Simulated scan of single mutants.
Amino acid sequence: MGKFLLWAVIILAVLLVSRILSHQKAAARQAAGRRQDADTRLAAESMVRCAHCHIFLPRSEAYMSQGKTWCSADHARLGLKK
């Protein structure tokens, strides 16, 4: 009977420790995800407006010509909308 109680206590202790560790890992993953979301928000790119059609697009995708921003080379060729 004494051996049975000893093994029961050992098994319960192992289960308790494994549960604590799994919760710590889940919390660490969740915190890392929040940090990554915050980094993504900080790295947001500025938006510019096409001089022809007036849509907004990221600066890295804009076409620069004649000192203005355009959404495509076609709109730069067409110029300002009348």
Rank of each mutant, 00 (worst) to 15 (best):
M1C: 01
M1N: 05
M1Y: 09
G2V: 10
K3V: 04
K3R: 12
F4H: 04
F4P: 00
F4R: 06
L5C: 03
L6K: 15
W7P: 00
W7E: 08
W7S: 07
A8P: 00
A8T: 10
A8V: 07
V9A: 14
I10Y: 05
L12A: 14
L12I: 08
A13M: 11
A13P: 01
A13R: 07
L16R: 04
V17Y: 09
S18G: 12
S18Q: 11
R19F: 12
I20K: 10
I20D: 07
L21H: 14
L21T: 12
S22Q: 10
S22I: 03
S22C: 03
H23K: 15
Q24T: 12
K25V: 02
A27D: 09
A27W: 03
A27N: 08
A28W: 05
A28S: 09
A28C: 02
R29M: 03
A31L: 15
A32V: 04
A32H: 14
A32D: 13
G33R: 15
G33H: 11
R34I: 07
R34E: 13
R35H: 12
Q36I: 04
Q36M: 08
D39L: 15
D39I: 09
D39G: 01
T40N: 11
T40Q: 10
R41D: 10
L42W: 10
A43P: 01
A43F: 04
A44M: 09
A44T: 11
A44S: 12
E45I: 09
S46H: 12
M47S: 13
M47A: 12
M47I: 08
M47R: 15
V48R: 05
V48W: 06
C50P: 06
C50Y: 08
A51E: 07
A51M: 04
C53M: 09
C53A: 10
C53F: 10
H54T: 11
I55P: 00
I55Q: 14
L57P: 00
L57I: 11
L57D: 02
R59H: 08
E61K: 15
E61D: 14
Y63H: 15
Y63P: 01
M64Q: 11
M64D: 04
S65Q: 14
S65C: 06
Q66P: 00
G67H: 07
G67V: 04
T69P: 01
T69V: 08
T69K: 09
W70H: 02
W70K: 02
W70P: 01
C71H: 05
S72I: 02
S72K: 06
A73L: 04
H75L: 03
H75F: 03
A76F: 02
R77W: 10
L78R: 15
L78G: 00
K81L: 13
